[in-house]
């Protein structure tokens, strides 16, 4: 291994200072579950690496009606928080216990598809990300953070420091479909957040993983169902539209054709799950 220096800043200002000093050659690492395998294989050969583990970015806090998640909070911490059920469920369906103890929520936003399962849930929840650099900070919607396959809006001298999740979101559902039940890359991941008023869908967010160059929203499927009641014809319409508009890829896990089919199947099942949850709630209320 050729690493000359492993830098472990103790605060965010120190981390940003180190990034400014060393420039884009400095490899930033949080939990290391994506970066370390590449270093171990010799695919990535950084000279300097900076760890964010001790930079004070690990808290998860409810502030008013926003859940603030430090970029370096672990996936295990996300499983344990009980403010947003969709996020615990997504985290529980990511990797394995040991990897969740190491891997971070922030790191998940940088993981190329078919990874990024937590990011899919965050997209459905309309999360925003706070980026910080030597010249200040900015907050942008997660949807605007992604710009392409393994590219994003982060400038070379910036770090992702926090993720904000609005907590009042109506109904949600999450399904990750892989070749195994656990610790498996996604064939497709679906996260849905719906709001309904007077029996009709007033707002819909349908987020897809492993169905594009990064986690994506199925915007046409969303538009196709807003204003309608959540019934079987409408669910079929959402599923077909999402399957049509997604941009899946082929890898060792699945072909493009199969992924597109499964987007349809799992958007349908996720919407049916919302209906089932509602029936359970009504049942309990009686």
């Amino acid at each position: 291994m050729t690493v000359l220096e492993y830098l472990v800043p103790r605060s965010l200002p120190e981390a940003i200072g180190l990034l400014e000093r060393h420039g884009p050659e400095l490899l930033v690492m949080a939990g290391g579950t994506v970066a370390m395998p590449l270093i171990n294989e010799g695919i990535s050969l950084p000279e300097r690496v900076m760890s964010l583990r001790s930079a004070g970015l690990t808290s998860i806090e409810q502030r008013g009606d926003v859940l603030s998640i430090g970029a370096a909070a672990t996936l295990t911490q996300l499983v344990a928080q009980d403010g947003v059920a969709l996020l615990s469920e997504a985290a529980r369906n990511t990797a394995s216990w040991s990897i969740r103890n190491m891997g971070t929520v922030g790191g998940n936003l940088f993981t190329p598809p078919p990874g990024g399962d937590v990011a899919v849930a965050l997209l459905a929840l309309d999360a925003r990300v706070r980026l910080s650099g030597p010249h200040g900070e900015r907050v942008l919607p997660l949807a605007d953070f992604y710009t392409g396959f393994m590219t994003n809006a982060l400038a070379a001298d910036e770090l992702l420091v926090e993720i904000y999740v609005p907590t009042a979101v109506g109904e949600t559902a999450f399904i990750k479909f892989g070749r195994k039940h656990a610790n498996t890359p996604a064939v497709v991941t679906v996260a849905i957040a719906l709001q309904r008023r007077d029996g009709r869908i007033s707002a819909a967010r349908i987020a897809l993983g492993a169905a594009g160059p990064h986690p994506i929203r199925a915007a046409r499927a969303e538009a196709a169902i807003v204003g309608s009641a959540l019934e079987s014809g409408v669910i079929e319409r959402a599923a077909d539209t999402a399957a049509g508009e997604c941009r899946p890829f082929r890898d060792a896990i699945a072909t493009e054709w199969y992924r597109r089919r499964m987007v349809g199947v799992f958007v349908r099942r996720a919407l049916e799950k919302v209906v089932e949850q509602e029936q359970d709630d009504v049942g309990e209320g009686e």
């Binding site: 760890s51 040991s98 190491m102």
Partner: peptide, 13 residues
């Protein structure tokens, strides 16, 4: 007390 993969963990951590 928590399980981790030692192959992904720099000993400095």
């Amino acid at each position: 007390g928590e399980p981790m993969m030692s192959c992904l963990l720099p000993v400095e951590d």
